[in-house]
């Protein structure tokens, strides 16, 4: 039924996963002294940048982003501006949540903020790409039985996987193993990344196997 869409989704996800992979490997080759643990913040920003660039490009090319209602330049600019604003707000939101979870307030603010940027680029950015800067639509998608298309379901799955990954990633921090990946925020960002990749794989697969049961209300 939605074979075409599922195939498009799978290839999109492949491209995004590949970009994550490249963002990890390329700097390791080009930049001396780059490692995922050692220069963790650099890794976070390189991966976030890659994911942002690739997602925006792919979703824009595929035309999944909801079309603008008006075609004036001013309207498009305001949309762009609103998207940027939401992006920054979401960074701040994630930062606050992480601090509420117990991250030090001042001491490692940069690390915490980097994690917030990573989480934002893995979750909020996708929402911006798929739904546009439209809070009503976001609330709809993330409430029960709110998905209206395959892409909505996919969005739910990836976002949930990423957040659960980051959540689970916090577990090893109190263990006294003194490993490099237990340092803040390595385990959380790695958890989020693994969750995100899992979500990328799981979303098309899940939709493929449940395509019979999935019924969407018309918009």
């Amino acid at each position: 039924m939605w074979d075409h869409e599922i195939r498009a989704m799978a290839s999109t996800h492949c491209i995004i996963a590949a970009s994550v992979f490249m963002a990890t490997v390329l700097p390791a080759v080009l930049v001396p002294g780059f490692s995922v643990y050692g220069t963790h913040l650099l890794w976070i920003y390189s991966v976030s940048g890659a994911v942002i660039a690739v997602s925006v490009a792919v979703f824009w090319l595929l035309g999944i982003t909801p079309p603008a209602k008006k075609h004036t330049v001013g309207y498009k600019l305001s949309r762009l501006f609103r998207s940027c604003l939401y992006f920054i707000l979401s960074c701040l939101f994630f930062h606050t949540v992480v601090v509420l979870y117990g991250a030090p307030l001042i001491e490692s603010a940069l690390e915490t903020f980097s994690l917030a940027v990573l989480l934002t680029s893995l979750t909020t950015l996708r929402c911006l790409c798929v739904l546009g800067p439209n809070v009503q639509a976001w609330i709809r998608v993330f409430s029960r039985h709110g998905a209206m298309s395959v892409w909505d379901t996919c969005l739910q799955i990836t976002v949930a996987c990423t957040l659960v990954g980051a959540w689970v990633g916090a577990f090893p921090i109190p263990l006294d193993w003194d490993r490099p990946w237990q340092a803040w925020p390595v385990s959380c960002s790695l958890g989020a990344m693994i969750g995100f990749l899992t979500g990328l794989v799981a979303a098309p697969a899940w939709i493929h196997y449940h395509r019979k049961q999935l019924t969407y209300k018309c918009k």
């Binding site: 117990g102 263990l175 006294d176």
Partner: peptide, 18 residues
């Protein structure tokens, strides 16, 4: 795990936050 027993408060804070 002994570390989790030692740091049990972290578990509870974490769960409570969630």
């Amino acid at each position: 795990a002994s570390s989790f027993v030692e740091e049990e408060h972290q578990t509870w804070y974490f769960l409570l936050n969630t």
